[in-house]
C-alpha cells in the first residue's frame, strides 16, 4: 500500500509521456528508414500532446492531435509514399556529419538543460501553489482570445466576476488569427499550385503504341 501512497501520479504520467516523446524523437533521429521515421514522429508528437494535456492545455493538445498528427503528418506520409523509391527509402548520413552534428547537438542540449534549471522561478512551484486543474480548463478562454476578447485580462472581484471592460485597444489574438487564416488559405492554394498535376498529352497513335509495351 505504501508504494501506492508514495506514487505521484502526475510525475508518473509526466515521465511516461516525456520519455515517449523524447525516446521516439531520438528514434526519428537514429532510424534511417523514412517510413519508420514518420511512424516514430507520430508517436513522439502524440506523446507531446499528452504532455500538453498534463500541463492543462487541453485545447492545444487536441489541436496537436488533430492538425499536427492527423493532418500534417498524414500529409508527410503521403509525401513519403509518393517518393518512397527503394534507393531513397534509407539514405544514411555520412559518418563525419554524424560526429559534427552530435557534438553540436550535445553542446546545445547541455546549454538548454542548464538554462532550464538555471532560473529559480522555473525550478520551483510558486509559493501560492498551482491552480487546481479543474479551474485551468481553458478551451473557452482560448476561443474568446482568438475572437478578440482576453477574458484572462478582465479585472475580477473576489468572486471571480468580471468588473470592468477591457481597454478597446486590446483585441486579443483576433488580428493574428485572421492573418493566419488568410495565410493558410494562400499557402494551400500555393501548395496546390506547386504540386499540381501537369498533364502531358500524347497523340492518339502514340498512346496506343505506348500501351502495348
Amino acid at each position: 500500500m505504501t508504494i501506492w501512497a508514495a506514487t505521484d501520479w502526475y510525475a508518473f504520467f509526466f515521465l511516461l509521456f516525456a520519455l515517449l516523446a523524447c525516446g521516439f524523437a531520438a528514434a526519428v533521429l537514429f532510424t534511417s528508414n523514412i517510413v519508420r521515421m514518420a511512424f516514430y514522429l507520430t508517436l513522439s508528437l502524440g506523446a507531446t500532446a499528452g504532455l500538453f494535456f498534463l500541463a492543462g492545455a487541453e485545447f492545444v493538445g487536441v489541436m496537436q492531435l488533430m492538425i499536427y498528427v492527423g493532418g500534417t503528418l498524414v500529409l508527410l506520409v503521403f509525401g513519403v509514399m509518393l517518393t518512397a523509391r527503394a534507393p531513397f527509402l534509407s539514405l544514411r548520413p555520412r559518418s563525419g556529419e554524424w560526429i559534427v552534428s552530435l557534438i553540436a547537438g550535445g553542446t546545445l542540449l547541455f546549454l538548454l538543460i542548464a538554462s532550464a534549471f538555471g532560473v529559480r522561478n522555473w525550478r520551483t512551484a510558486s509559493d501560492s501553489g498551482p491552480l487546481p486543474l479543474a479551474e485551468a480548463q481553458t478551451a473557452t478562454a482560448v476561443g474568446a482570445g482568438l475572437t478578440g476578447v482576453r477574458v484572462d485580462r478582465l479585472n475580477r472581484d473576489a468572486a471571480g466576476h468580471a468588473l470592468s471592460q477591457l481597454p478597446h485597444t486590446d483585441s486579443g489574438y483576433l488580428l493574428p488569427f485572421v492573418i493566419v487564416s488568410v495565410h493558410l488559405l494562400v499557402v494551400l492554394v500555393g501548395a496546390a499550385y506547386l504540386a499540381r498535376a501537369k498533364v502531358r498529352r500524347r497523340s492518339a497513335t502514340e498512346s496506343t503504341a505506348s500501351v502495348e509495351g
Binding site: A197, V199, A204
Partner: peptide, 16 residues
Amino acid sequence: SIINDPRVVEFNIRTD
C-alpha cells in the same frame, strides 16, 4: 475527366 482520358499518360508527380 482526366483519369478517364486514355490519351493522358503521365501526371506531373513522377510515380512508378
